[in-house]
Amino acid sequence: MKEITITTNKISNMVDGHFHAWGWEVPLYLFLGGLTAGILIITAVMAFRKRQDGFKLSAGKLSLWAPIILSLGMISLFLDIKHKLFVWRFYTAFEITSPMSWGSWVLLLIYPLSFLLILATIRESYPGLFSFVNKFLSALKLDVLFKKLTEFSEKNHKIIAGITIPFAITLGIYTGILLSAFGSRPFWNSSMLGPLFLVSGLSSAVAMVLILSNENEERSLFTKVDIALLLTEGIFILLFLIGLATSSAQYKAALTLITGGALTPSFWIFIVMFGLFIPLLLELLELNGRKINPKLAPALVIAGGLFLRFIIVEAGQMNSWLPY
C-alpha cells in the first residue's frame, strides 16, 4: 500500500478529490454535434431515395434542425471556453494534430452545406418560411440571389447530399476522437469512441425523426433503422469495454470506474439499461404490433445518448496515469 499526499494543497483542476476541467458544456456540445451529424446523414441519404412521399420529415423538414442544433452545440462550447474574448483564435490557425482544430474547421464547412440542404427542399417543406425569407431578403435586394441559390440547391440536391455525407460522418466521428485523442486519459484513449459516438449520434437523430414524424411508413422504416443502430451501438460499447479490459493495467483501472467504481450505476442503468436495452425492447414490441407510447422509446434513446457523453466525459477525467 502506498500513502500518497500532495502536501502543498494543490487544487488546480481538482474538484471533490479528482481532476475536473470540463463540466456539463463539453458533453452537451459533443452530444449536439453528434445529433447534428446524424440529422445531416439522414437528410442527405434520403435525398437519394426515389420515393420521398411518406417521408416528409426525414427527406425534407428535418434538415432545418441541423444548423439550429449545431448552433446550440456551439453556444455550449462557447460557454465552456474560459478566455472568451479570444474565441476567434480558433480560426486564425489550423493545427493538424489537434482534433479540436479539425472540429472547428469542419463545423465551419457544415454550416453552408446544411443551409444548401435546407434550400433544396425548402419550397416544399417550409413554404411559409420560404416566402418570409424571400420577403425579408427582397427588402435587402438579395431575393434574386436567394432564389438562384434555392434553384441551384434543388437542382443539385444529390450532389450536395453526396458532399455532405462524408463531412457529416467526419463530424460524428470527430465528437468521439476529440476525447480518444487524449493519451493521458486511459478511459477515453480508445479508437472505438469515434464510431460509437457516430452511431449514437445517428440513433439520436433517428429517435428525433420517430418523435417528430406522424407518418406510419416513415416511422416504421426508422424504427427498424433504430433497432439496427441500437444493436450496433451495443456491440460498439461491448468492443469498447473489451478494449479497456484487455489493455494494460492503467486501462483496466479505468474500466473499474464502471465495473464497481463510482460511475457503475449511472453507466449500466442510464446508458445500457434505459438508453439501449429498454428502447430496443420497446421498439421490437412495437414492430410486433404492441400498443406502446410511440414517443417513449425514442425519448429514452435521446436521453441515453446524452448520458453516454456525460458519463464518458466524466469517467475520462476521473482516471489518469497518475494516482493523484
Partner: peptide
C-alpha cells in the same frame, strides 16, 4: 495568452495535471 481560448484541451491532455486556467481565462 493572446492565442489561448481557454478550451482546456491542453489541461485535459496533460497526464501530470500541470496546467490550470488563470482567473483571466487563459491557461
Amino acid at each position: 495568452p493572446n492565442k489561448c481560448t481557454g478550451c482546456q484541451a491542453c489541461v485535459v491532455s496533460c497526464p501530470y495535471n500541470a496546467r490550470f486556467v488563470m482567473p483571466e481565462g487563459y491557461v
